[in-house]
Simulated scan of single mutants.
Amino acid sequence: MKKIGIILTIAVLLLLSVLFYFLRGTNLNRFGAEHYYIQITTDGESEVTVIDTGEKMERFSYQLPAYNEQGDMKEMTFTSHKNLRRDAYLKLFYKESKGVTSYEEVQENDIPEKALEQLKK
């Protein structure tokens, strides 16, 4: 009975080690999110916040139309810690309950055809 417990413990530890290895560096905010695509056309609106230590933190707010793979539009609001490059294409990760949870810059040829058609209008 003691051997079964030891083997079971080793198996669980091995399974957890493999799981942590594959999830390291993974942005969990992207799991289960819908994908929308935007093009940065304006500078972000600067928002400065003073934290408890007196340090100022600047974020840039954006409100732009975004398009999913079917070309359906949704107005998206999100923030960034830096002013994003104009004309850059972004893939937004959106969850109904949280809004935009993450984003990444993509190339024009990575954007689904119907979304790109809408962005080019």
Rank of each mutant, 00 (worst) to 15 (best):
F78D: 02
T101S: 09
A66Y: 05
S97P: 07
Y37S: 02
S97L: 12
Y103A: 00
F22G: 00
E69L: 12
T26G: 06
E105G: 04
H35Y: 14
Y62V: 00
F20G: 00
H35F: 03
E58N: 09
Q63L: 11
M57T: 04
P112K: 07
G99E: 05
P65E: 04
V100Y: 05
D43H: 14
R24F: 11
F22P: 00
Y103M: 06
S80C: 06
D72Q: 15
F93S: 03
D87A: 07
F78N: 01
Y36T: 07
G32V: 09
Y89V: 05
P65C: 07
F78C: 05
I111M: 03
F60M: 09
E58S: 10
A33P: 04
Q107H: 08
L64E: 05
R30Y: 03
A33F: 01
H81E: 11
A66H: 10
D110E: 12
Y67A: 01
Y103W: 13
T26H: 14
E45H: 14
N83R: 11
T77R: 12
G44N: 05
N29A: 04
R59E: 12
E45G: 08
E34V: 03
E105Q: 13
R30S: 05
Y67L: 02
E105D: 10
F31A: 03
V100Q: 05
I38P: 05
L64P: 01
Q39V: 05
T79P: 00
F60V: 01
K91R: 10
D72A: 15
L28C: 07
Y37L: 04
M76H: 08
M73H: 15
N68G: 06
G71W: 13
E108Q: 14
K82I: 09
I40K: 09
K98M: 10
L84M: 09
E58R: 10
N83S: 12
K56D: 06
Y67W: 07
Y103P: 04
L84A: 02
Y89N: 03
G32M: 13
T42F: 12
T101F: 08
R24V: 00
E47K: 15
S80K: 12
V50I: 09
L64W: 08
L90H: 01
E69P: 06
N68K: 08
